Measured scan of single mutants.
Amino acid sequence: EDDHHMEFCRVCKDGGELLCCDTCPSSYHIHCLNPPLPEIPNGEWLCPRCTCP
């Protein structure tokens, strides 16, 4: 699979289990988001950068 997502968290710059945005290459740990997510959501997810007006 050709995955163009970042291999590190945009916030802390560390790797591991990352949540990938469905519209851009950004990846995040769920605990690095503000507010943090309790678990990885099902379905499409947009990062804070893509949901800002």
Rank of each mutant, 00 (worst) to 15 (best):
E1I: 06
E1D: 02
D2M: 15
D2Q: 15
D2Y: 13
D2G: 15
H4E: 09
H4S: 04
H4Q: 11
H5L: 05
H5M: 09
M6Q: 03
M6W: 06
M6I: 12
M6R: 04
E7W: 03
E7R: 07
E7K: 03
E7P: 04
F8A: 09
C9L: 01
C9V: 00
C9A: 01
R10E: 10
R10P: 06
R10F: 14
R10S: 06
R10Q: 14
R10C: 12
V11H: 13
V11K: 12
C12A: 01
C12F: 00
C12H: 01
C12W: 01
C12M: 00
K13I: 04
K13P: 00
D14M: 08
D14K: 14
D14I: 07
D14Y: 04
G15P: 08
G16V: 01
G16D: 06
G16W: 00
E17R: 09
E17W: 03
E17T: 13
L18S: 02
L18G: 02
L18E: 01
L18T: 05
L19K: 11
L19D: 05
L19M: 13
L19S: 05
L19N: 09
L19Y: 06
C20D: 12
C20Q: 15
C20H: 15
C20V: 11
C21W: 00
C21F: 00
C21A: 02
D22A: 13
D22W: 06
D22M: 06
T23W: 07
T23F: 06
T23Y: 10
T23D: 05
C24W: 00
P25K: 10
P25R: 13
P25E: 05
S26G: 13
S26M: 15
S27R: 13
S27D: 02
S27K: 10
S27P: 03
Y28N: 03
Y28A: 03
H29M: 00
H29T: 00
I30R: 12
I30N: 10
I30G: 09
I30K: 11
H31R: 11
H31W: 05
C32G: 01
C32I: 00
C32Q: 05
L33S: 03
L33A: 04
L33T: 05
N34E: 08
N34W: 04
N34M: 08
N34I: 10
N34L: 07
P35T: 07
P35A: 05
P36T: 07
P36N: 05
P36A: 11
L37E: 06
L37F: 06
L37I: 11
L37G: 04
P38F: 08
P38K: 14
P38N: 14
E39Y: 07
E39I: 12
E39L: 07
E39R: 10
E39S: 13
I40G: 12
I40H: 13
I40R: 15
I40L: 12
P41G: 08
P41Q: 07
P41E: 07
P41F: 11
N42P: 10
N42S: 10
G43Q: 11
G43N: 10
G43P: 05
E44Y: 09
E44L: 12
E44W: 04
E44Q: 09
W45I: 03
W45G: 04
L46G: 08
L46K: 14
C47L: 02
C47R: 02
C47G: 02
P48G: 05
P48K: 04
P48I: 00
P48T: 06
P48A: 08
P48W: 05
R49H: 13
R49T: 13
R49S: 09
C50M: 00
C50A: 00
C50D: 02
C50I: 00
C50W: 00
T51R: 10
T51H: 07
T51S: 13
T51Y: 07
C52V: 13
C52T: 15
